[in-house]
Design a binder for these strands. Structure first.
Length: 649
DNA sequence: TCTGAGAGCGCC
DNA sequence: AAAGGGCGCTCTCAGA
């Protein structure tokens, strides 16, 4: 690890926080939590604990006095909270932050094995039994310090006291293990995986710093618009519910009657059993009365209304009372969207209403409550958390709230601050482009170089439409194109006949499996170079080789069984996502550009209104500057999107 | 009463 | 032999 010669030695720092709201999850959210204690363990052997209102200052003073570089385990979390409390220290801490054990572990090809995790889980359950009622040790993931330290350092498993988060001993142990792990990982990178070490140091760590800045900045929310949208969703939901209640009134009555009957029968049976056991048979009448009374009470509490959120109840209504075929494309009964859409297409009005209810309910229940919880009311900004180790591919994940799953209809409530505009750009057809680059397949190279439509070409090839000009496919064979689009990329990643059959069924067309397999072979044949590349890659990964993606991120599989389905996909998806992260990093270095969101292949960047067009070109440049030249030619990255006052798709 | 798995669904 | 992949969130339901 290069200390940059600037710092004398290292110290691991860890903070403990507690929630300011009843929900303990508040401890994870900067504006809903408070720091209880800061621990620091330095390579010098010094162990420090800082508390109280001066804790941050004293800690930083110690770091400065001793000229320390600072590391942590998922240190982005700690820094985000510290910077929230003390924005003036952002620059100082950002510079001092020189390492992270979570990011090291994420990129070390040697992973914690599943059997160790399972063993650890057993120990945790055992420990939980010893705890006072209501307290548990939270499940620890493969990248948590609680797993990493015992696995790689061989220290005994350790748990904090969940009744006392504000504990010197624990926070110091945390720091000590972090420091030891850091040195251990550093050594292993140097000795065994120098390329992975470089990726960690030159990409993963700087990118994570960029993400911290993105999180701290947040994205501005038009709260009036948000309220309006929530009101609309709630209204839509109750309207749909009302209509559905009307349509299903008789079913509701039948269900109520049936439940009452069942309940009554149960209580009568209980009464009979009780009476049989009676020694004094003269009390039979009174016993009977008592059970009748109990039944009346239970009846009053009985809720027989149909719970639309219960797949079990809904399934009963749809299949038994309405007589619908509720089998999905795998033949299993289900109330999933694909089943409901098929029924809606057959013209069932109740199902159309149910679908409306479902989507409004999703907005009202999943989106808005989270947005209201995580909105900073003083600034009107939303601050997601990006998890650099959230996905095995190297993609980011986003949570609290998840800004990578914002429904398109909700996007325009996220806006530029006054005086600014948003540049929203996505990398067009990123995956076909990267597949062409990697596999050198001549047909795919030709397609992405010439700008032909991947899906239209597939439609022609698969369905034997040689006579139809490419540009007419979209209009003359829209239905077939839709199906081909459904399974085109999937087949290149390893999908088979079943998957293709499903794509047909979704469009209301049934094809036998043999025919579907023919389509798969046809596509593999069309892109023979892709399939050949995939097979070579698979055999390397199955041997346990470490493969590096476009940006140098290591790819390795412990389980060879997983390779067929995940290997090629991980190379392509991970490369795409890393290109976007690298672009976001470079854009964040452009004066005037503030990256607000990363959504896998899309960036949202805030720029001063007056320089919008100029900076839009800078954003485009950084997103498309990556060299995709292979032995057969060069493919170019393209972006789509523009400038607006709000986030638009 | 609490937890964890599964269903379902939003996004790429 | 056959197999698209990657997430987070909310709800229900069953088991402890």
């Amino acid at each position: 690890m290069t200390l940059g010669k600037t710092y004398s030695y290292l110290a691991a720092v860890d903070i403990e926080t507690k929630s300011l709201i009843p929900d303990p999850n508040g401890a994870l959210i900067p504006h809903l939590s408070v720091i209880t204690v800061i621990g620091l363990v330095a390579q010098s052997g010094d162990r420090k604990v800082f508390r109280g209102p001066e804790a941050i200052d004293e800690c930083c003073e110690y770091i400065k006095q001793n000229n320390l570089g600072v590391i942590g385990q998922n240190f982005k979390f700690d820094l985000r909270k510290i910077i929230f409390d003390r924005p003036d220290l952002e620059q100082f801490l950002m510079e001092r932050w020189v390492g992270d054990t979570l990011l090291q572990a994420h990129n070390l090809p040697d992973k914690v094995v599943d059997s160790f995790l399972a063993q650890y889980e057993l120990k945790r359950e055992h420990e939980n039994d010893e705890l006072p009622k209501g307290y548990t040790h939270r499940k620890a993931g493969a990248l948590s310090l609680k797993v990493l330290a015992p696995y790689f350092l061989g220290v005994p498993p350790f748990w904090e006291d969940p009744t006392d988060h504000d504990n010197d001993e624990y926070v110091l142990k945390d720091c000590e293990y972090t420091l030891r792990l850091f040195e251990y990982f550093d050594k292993r990178f140097k000795e065994e995986f120098p390329a992975a070490g470089r990726f960690y140091e030159e990409c993963q760590l700087p990118w994570t710093k960029m993400l911290l800045k993105v999180e701290v900045t947040g994205i501005h929310v038009d709260t009036d618009k948000m309220s309006q949208k929530e009101y609309d969703a709630v209204t839509d939901r109750s309207e749909a519910k009302l209509i559905l209640d009307g349509m299903w009134a008789t079913i509701q009555q039948e269900i109520t009657r049936k439940s009452e009957g069942d309940l009554q029968a149960r209580y009568e049976a209980m009464a009979l059993t009780a009476i049989e056991k009676l020694k004094d048979k003269t009390k039979a009448e009174r016993t009977h009365e008592r059970y009748a009374n109990n039944y009346a009470q239970a009846r009053a509490k009985l809720d027989t209304s149909i719970n639309l959120a219960s797949p079990k109840q809904l399934l009963e209504v749809l299949s038994e009372y309405r007589g619908y075929d509720v089998r999905d494309f795998d033949g299993k009964t289900s109330t999933s969207k694909e089943v409901l859409q098929k029924l809606a297409q057959e013209g069932h009005e109740d199902i159309k209403t149910l679908l409306k209810y479902r989507s409004a309910d999703k907005l009202a229940n999943s989106y808005f409550p989270a947005y209201k919880l995580f909105l900073r009311k003083d600034t009107g900004t939303m601050h997601t958390t990006f998890n650099p180790s959230g996905a095995r591919t190297g993609r980011l994940s986003s949570s609290k709230p998840n800004m990578q799953q914002v429904a398109p209809v909700l996007r325009d409530m996220f806006t530029a601050r006054p005086g600014y505009k948003l540049v929203t750009k996505d990398l067009a057809a990123l995956e076909p482009v990267l597949i062409a680059y990697y596999t050198q397949d001549p047909r795919l190279m030709e397609i992405v170089q010439s700008g032909m439509s991947f899906h239209c070409v597939n439609t022609k090839e698969v369905f034997g439409l040689q006579d139809v000009p490419l540009e007419e496919i979209k209009h003359r064979h829209a239905d077939l194109r839709k199906i081909a689009k459904e399974f085109g990329l999937s087949v290149l990643y390893g999908a088979g006949g079943n998957r293709v059959q499903k794509s047909f069924l979704k469009q209301g067309v049934s094809r036998d499996i043999a025919q579907c397999k023919q389509y798969v072979y046809k596509l593999r044949d069309t892109y023979a170079g892709v399939w050949q590349f995939k097979e070579e890659l698979d055999s390397m990964l199955q041997r346990g080789d470490v493969v590096y993606n476009y940006m140098g991120r290591p790819i390795v599989f412990n389980d060879p069984e997983e390779v067929y389905m995940k290997g090629f996909n991980r190379l392509i998806q991970g490369s795409g996502s890393d290109i976007l992260q690298a672009a976001a990093y470079d854009i964040s270095q452009e004066p005037g550009c503030q990256v607000l969101l990363l959504v896998h292949d899309e960036l949202v960047v805030e720029v001063p209104e007056k320089r919008a067009e100029e900076l839009e070109r800078r954003v485009e440049f950084h997103m498309t500057k990556w060299d995709l030249t292979n032995d057969t030619g060069t493919v170019k990255l393209k972006v789509e999107g523009g400038i607006d006052l709000c986030w638009k798709k």
